[in-house]
Nucleic acid binder design. Structure first.
Length: 425
RNA sequence: GGAGGGGUGGCUGAGUGGUCGAAAGCGGCGGUCUUGAAAACCGUUGAGUGUAACAGCUCCCAGGGUUCGAAUCCCUGCCCCUCCGCCA
């Protein structure tokens, strides 16, 4: 949620900024509603004032044993008038709120212009792309030949876009998770948390998945209306919903390993082969809650923390900055990390690191108490994948494959693999 | 699953249908004292909206209702606690 003041004062300028990301703000509708809201609210409040004053004087008169009948008669019509105005006002506010809750965040001034993926800008390439003296296979074939990765059985058990892993490959998958968590907690100063995998609507509203992106989510059908989390960002950032933390506790850095569930409703034909795009995948998430003046540098650090994983694993990657139009709803600025995938001869997204500034914090009333002023102020929230485990597994398999179809276990993972150095049949 | 008790400011916790945005304590902030600190004492201290600043308005879990007037009474929901049963 953007600062409501933007909608009252600089509506034209705001519309300009949002157009940069391909969002058309309905300036006329909003300003008309806003105008109505203002006059109605003033009217409503003066009626309330009248009611409060007369109720008070009736109370006084009664306490002194006076006859209150004439006073009651005088306020007779007030009640229904007030009820009508309040009903109209709350209807109007709901309408306005419905519009504003669907307005995305404003791009940071350092974000490149553009509306499509092609307009994203490459900032750096890190690591050497591996060369093979044989035709490298993709992870689907590698996994199938090892007898450790099976999509057909998964679709029997559940349906398409799920996977079954077995034996050392399942262990490698777990090893990656442990390695990531240990790196972030022991070397990068994150606090590990365990959180629910189902959340309520308020939490999803807080991080911005609702009300606009319901179709991307798996919703439970019983009367509690819980949703499966699409990312740990939701439960972890919501740790601070409706909280006021002391400034001295900042910055807060959390990491969590969770499964993520996405319906992928809008991407039926894309990446149907393999582990790139699944309904269920594991991710180690990084979340930071910081003072406003620190969020720009916090995004740089957080992105480095994600990069460190790729570097330690010896995977080649590139760092992209997303153009205004390719960013997520809540983000002001996003770096994507893309890992080299040999079978596709392409870099593919493996991490997305964003600064939301106060956009989510305002929705969820996540605040800190300033030591200087003693007043509560909105936090800035950031998050990033550190990393998507399924995609990392795929990258390790393909980049570390050998001519005989075996897979060398990266040095840093061996302690988590009981010393196994090569995964083979 | 059964029975009961609760949700009040940053925290703990009082609150009679009317001068209650709300006692008290803790914590925070300012001060006195002190070389400095602690202790003690004095003062101050909810969030939002609005205003040039006041005023005004909203908020005592959420949503409805009763009433001239609701933190207080009624209904529904959510959450927490205690006891019994069941259970990994």
């Amino acid at each position: 949620m953007l600062d409501p003041k933007f909608f009252r004062n600089d509506l034209k300028q705001l519309a300009e900024q949002l157009r940069a990301r391909g969002f058309e703000l309905d300036v006329d509708a909003i300003s008309a509603l806003e105008e109505k809201r203002k006059t109605l609210q003033v009217h409503c409040e003066s009626l309330q004032q009248e009611r409060n004053a007369s109720a008070k004087s009736i109370g006084k008169a009664k306490a002194q044993g006076e006859d209150i009948a004439p006073l009651l008669a005088a306020v007779e019509s007030l009640k229904s008038q007030l009820q009508d105005s309040e009903a109209e006002l709350s209807g109007l506010q709901a309408e306005l709120e419905g519009i504003l809750a669907r307005v995305p965040n404003i791009p940071h001034e350092s974000v490149p212009a553009g509306l499509k993926e092609d307009d994203n800008v490459e900032l750096a390439r890190v690591g050497d792309i591996p060369t093979f003296d044989f035709e490298p296979k993709d992870h689907v074939d590698l996994g199938a030949e090892l007898g450790m990765l099976d999509f057909d059985t998964a679709s029997k058990i559940t349906g398409s876009r799920f996977s079954v892993m077995k034996g050392p490959l399942a262990t490698l998958h777990r090893a990656l998770t442990q390695f990531m968590l240990n790196t972030h907690t022991l070397e990068h100063g994150y606090n590990e948390v365990y959180v629910p995998y189902m959340v309520n609507r308020d939490s999803l509203y807080g991080t911005g998945q609702l009300p606009k992106f319901e179709e991307d989510l798996f919703k439970l059908t019983d009367d509690r209306e819980f949703y499966l989390i699409p990312t740990a960002e939701v439960p972890v950032t919501n740790l601070m919903r409706d909280e006021i933390v002391d400034e001295s506790a900042l910055p807060l850095r959390y990491t969590a390993h969770t499964p993520c569930f996405r319906s992928e409703a809008g991407s039926y034909g894309r990446d149907t082969r393999g582990m790139i795009r699944q309904h269920q995948f594991e991710k180690v998430e990084l979340v930071q809650l910081v003072k406003p003046e620190e969020s720009d540098t916090a995004l740089e650090r957080l992105t480095e923390h994600a990069e460190a994983i790729l570097q330690k694993l010896g995977l080649a990657y590139r760092k992209m900055i997303l153009c205004a139009g390719d960013m997520g709803f809540s983000a002001t600025k996003t770096y994507d990390l893309e890992v080299w995938v040999p079978s596709q001869e392409k870099y593919r997204e493996i991490s997305s690191c964003s600064n939301m500034r106060d956009f989510q914090a305002r929705r969820m009333k996540a605040r800190y108490r300033s030591a200087e002023t003693g007043k509560p102020a909105l936090l800035h929230t950031l998050n990033g994948s550190g990393l998507a485990v399924g995609r990392t597994l795929l990258a390790v398999m393909e980049n570390y494959q050998q001519a005989d179809g075996s897979i060398v276990v990266p040095e840093v993972l061996r302690p988590y693999m009981g010393g196994v150095e090569v995964i083979k049949r």
